[in-house]
Design a protein around this nucleic acid. Structure first.
Length: 135
DNA sequence: TAGGCCATCTGGTCCT
DNA sequence: AGGACCAGATGGCCTA
């Protein structure tokens, strides 16, 4: 199963900008203050006066964050698709029914219980049936 | 308008 | 080290 084509990533980027007004967190490049970055640099033994490496570090960190965000979006997309598939496997639920994830989980759970009960009844009935090999 | 639901971001933890 | 998974926070959308 492939996830995260270039097109869908671009779409996600757009969606993100459309959906959220949170300028602080959405693909934000100013999440980390210079002080924080400087502390990080000091911690790994990098001289703080090197402005270029500081910028690079900031870039690298942001790039990694963006990649992690994209992976997380893809992961959640897979999860949502799984919920959709689960929903379609539920009987008595029309395809166009709006069902929350929680509802889907609850219905699936009760459907499994129902199926289990049918199975038990079936076994019970079979135990009283005539043995076929007895003529 | 409040509440429910969802998508997304984020940082932490665990695993390979 | 990097990726997967998770839970908390946040903001948008929709409906009663």
């Amino acid at each position: 199963m492939s996830t995260g084509s270039v097109a869908s990533d671009a779409e996600d980027y757009e969606t993100c900008h459309r959906r959220t007004a949170r300028k602080i967190t959405c693909f934000n490049t100013s999440r980390y203050s210079d002080e924080e970055l400087e502390d990080d640099a000091l911690e790994v033994g990098i001289k703080p006066e090197r402005k270029l490496s500081k910028a690079h570090q900031k870039d690298a960190r942001q790039t990694q964050r963006n990649a992690a965000n994209a992976r997380e979006r893809a992961r959640m997309r897979v999860l949502s698709k799984a919920f959709s598939r689960l929903k379609t496997s539920l009987p008595w639920v029309p395809a166009d029914t709006k069902l929350s994830k929680l509802d889907t989980l609850r219905l699936a759970s009760s459907y499994i219980s129902h199926l289990r009960q049918l199975l038990q009844e079936d076994r019970f009935e079979r135990s009283f049936a005539h043995p076929v090999n007895l003529v």
